[in-house]
Every structure is written in structure tokens, then in C-alpha cells.
Amino acid sequence: MSDQRPLLEVTDLVKHYAVRGGVLRRRVGTVHAVDGVSFSVGKGETLGLVGESGCGKSTVARAVLRLVEPSSGAIKLNGTDITGLSKAEMRPHRRSMQIVFQDPFASLNPRMTAGDIVGEPLAVHGLATGRAQQERVAELFAQVGLRADQMKNYPHQFSGGQRQRICIARALSLGPSLIVCDEPVSALDVSIQAQVINLLIDLQRKNDFSYLFIAHDLAVVAHISHRVAVMYLGRIVEIADKSELFANPRHPYTQALLASVPVADPKAKRLAPMVDGDVPSPINPPSGCAFHTRCRYVMDRCKVERPALVEAGEGHQVACWLNDGTGRPE
């Protein structure tokens, strides 16, 4: 990386949703979906964003693309803050950021041919029409491992893995610098999952774009990411280089997440859940550190004061009072 400025810089991103109730639809509560999240993604880098359902990882993805309007915070793409831009001003930036969703059936128009789906962004942005568009689409099909003669087929004629390839081809069509992948392989079978992950890795090597890769599956994230951020109830609790995070997790939640993954080795039996209970509701998140209700190392301080994300080693940040000075649980 010659240019040190990150491609994407997210600062203090907040997204609250109003909960309305009663006849007058008055605001009766707030869902703290994303509650002050900051991170950056470098050029050609993959940042994995992991967390359990409801932790706000998908909201982060959508807010970065401005598919949902953030309540506050800044999102800088290539140095430009895109949060305040109007629809028309957004348009040129949309070319450089694309998304691949989880369910490849819900994100493909069933009445359009695969070729038209992949070619549509080219037409919308006035980049190619007619023959040129057809040729470009055929090229994209080849890149994602589909045959050009499949361009005239409809989504239902493809398998789940192939549909995800169509979504990837569509995302590639405009030559983006950032592709947000929101659980792109969790709907696929294991053997197909590997194919799609490999495809994503190969495409990145060839094109040098960045991924914001969102998943709940730690193994998948561990595989594809360069750096990983762990989210819990709308906040990032730990962020580090992949090898550092998995070898040396500092936050008790990250430790619990890692320990909960069933290991595919019968000799390493260890079905001992590290955390009890459920994730609290984001409508009334716990005070202080949001994880304190399930944390085995909880201290009085955790219940009142919210720990900030602080440096805990080379490129390793963690939001936990245990790491404040002492660095280790007792």
C-alpha cells in the first residue's frame, strides 16, 4: 500500500431507530442499532465485521453505503465525507461502492435475465450499452466463473452458489473500490461456500479493491479478512489484525465467541459455554459496558462506565476495563 490514507473511514457512526407505540405512534423507545462505531478500511484490505444477530453489523454495512441514513457520524470514502451528500451528489460515489447480500434469491429480480441484471448498472451509469454492454457482461461472467451462454437464463435457473456469483458480477460491473459483503456465504452449503470465498479472494488479488466483510461465522471471517472487528450491541468491542485477534483475544466477549465455535476435532471436545444468557435488547442496552450482564470478569466499574476503544498493542484496540493498564484478567 503506497497511499497510507484509508479508503473508508467511519467515525462515531450512530444509527438509532425510533420505537413507536400507542394510537398516536409516539416515540416510546429507541433501538440503539449502531452506537458510536469507528473503523477504517485500507486500499486492497479486507476488514471482517463479526458479531451475533442484532449487534448492528448489517446496519453498519447499510449506513456505509447510505442505504440507511446514519443518525450521526462521518463516513469518508477516499477522503470525501459522503454523509451530507444529496442523492445526485451521491451518484458518482455509488459507482465506487457496491454490496453483495446474504440471500442471492431475494437480491436478484426474478423477471430479469442474469445478463440484464449484471448489465443494468452499466446502463444506469451510462458506461456501456448495446454490444459493448453485452461484451462487458460476458467478461464479468467469465471472471466469476459463469458461462457467457448463461446470460440469457433467469435467476431461478441457477443454484444458490451461482446466484451469488451473479450478485458478485453485478457488484464488479462498475469497477468499485469497496465491496460490502453482508453474510455473502451464510446461505450456501459448505462445499459451495468454499468456492465463493475463493472467488472473492481471487477477485481481490486481481482487482485490488477492499472488502467490508460482514459475517457471523468466525471461521469464514478468519479466513478472508486481514483485520477483524468484533461488534456487540451496536459497538465495536475489539479490533485487531486477524492473526493477533485470534491468537490473543483481549475482550471477554471475543474470547467467548472463539470458545463457542464447535471445533471439527473430536479429540478437542470442549462443549462448555463461555457465556450464559442471551444478548440483551438494544432498545434498553445495559449501562456501562454492554457486555457486563454476561461477562465472567465483571467488575463494579463495568456496570456504570462505558469503556472506550483503546490501544492494547500494535494495531490492537479493545474496549474493556480489564485492559485498562493491567491488560489481563486476574
Partner: peptide, 9 residues
């Protein structure tokens, strides 16, 4: 084909 968390190294 299964990505393993163990492969983090």
C-alpha cells in the same frame, strides 16, 4: 473445504 478458526495462524 471447511474454513477452520484454527487456521488463523
Amino acid at each position: 473445504s471447511m474454513p477452520a478458526v484454527i487456521s488463523f495462524g
